[in-house]
Amino acid sequence: MDAKELAYLHDLYVAPDWGERFAELLDESIALPEEGEVLYISAGTGGHALALLERASEDVQLVCTDEDAERLEIARAKADVMKLAERVKFRVAPMEETGFDAGRFDLVIAEASLTTPARLPQIFAEAARVATYDGLIALGTTTAASFGEFFSIYWEALDRAGLDQIATDVVSRFINEQPTISHLEEIAEQSGLKNIKTRTRIEEFRYDSGEDFLNSPFIAHFLLEKWLAPIPEIERRSAILREIAQLIDEERHHADFPLTYKATVITGRKR
């Protein structure tokens, strides 16, 4: 599947459900400036970023960055339709290196919910660097104890597929890399933030069967790609997926299979 197709899948299946849950938390956690510039790091296809701009003062300008050029093309088209094109700019850039001058933005938002947790310290540092002094910074991510139902099944699926020697290492890494709230707060403080606050909400998706879980575009193309990355062999991946589907059906006992996670937004102001 090419980048353009993945961008459309992101707009259809990630932004409207997964993304909206983080958008709600962000809306509850931030206040838009009366004037100045807002930077939205990892804006994706632009839905939440443009919604913020639409309700902001006319004196607010928006800059959206994303690592995927095709997603930003969709965001740019949305801005044209919403007649916001004159107030928003787009740039393809890594989350850790946006390329903007230090101290430029009055509000910096980073949507890091699908980002590898190891990148969070550098993302925080970049957000703090480009924010004005006393500017507000908000970052959304998942935190510890997310996806527990899946990781339990994943470990057993690896074991059944003959990968018992690596099962513990693979699954433990995904579990342990999830940041705790205290770890996030520590990173924020080290990045130069003050008045640090967090807001967390337990969210869940539900699936009718193992097949329904694996066929979900969000699961198949955005979460499983990351979780199966340590297993490069296509044949072994296929065997693992068969075991995952079977285990989900065994576990659920004719009930829905839940996938729960902790959506978290942390905010602070630049010291």
Rank of each mutant, 00 (worst) to 15 (best):
F124N: 03
D159T: 12
A161I: 04
E233S: 15
E54F: 04
P117W: 12
I219S: 01
K89H: 11
D106T: 08
F205E: 10
E185G: 09
L107E: 06
R91Q: 12
F218G: 05
L247V: 09
E243Y: 11
G192D: 02
E235L: 15
A49T: 01
D2Q: 11
D17V: 12
Q178G: 07
I240S: 03
R76G: 04
I166D: 09
G103V: 05
A229N: 15
Q122S: 15
I219R: 08
S191R: 01
S172T: 15
L228I: 12
A220T: 10
A157G: 02
E20F: 10
P258A: 08
I234W: 13
H48T: 07
I153H: 02
G44L: 03
A125W: 00
T198S: 14
S42K: 01
D17I: 12
P258D: 07
A23H: 09
D17G: 08
P179H: 08
I123S: 00
R21I: 10
P179I: 06
L9E: 05
D164C: 05
L120H: 06
E111S: 13
D80P: 00
E54P: 01
E189Q: 11
V170C: 09
A15M: 07
V170P: 07
A75N: 02
R199C: 08
E35D: 09
G46I: 01
A118F: 10
R271H: 05
E156I: 06
A7M: 07
K4A: 13
E235F: 13
Q246K: 13
F218A: 14
G140D: 02
A69S: 12
R173D: 15
E243V: 07
P16L: 10
E5C: 06
E58Q: 09
A79R: 03
Y154K: 02
D208H: 10
D80Y: 12
D134F: 05
F100Y: 15
T143V: 14
S146L: 10
E67D: 00
R55W: 05
R201E: 14
A138I: 06
T260H: 01
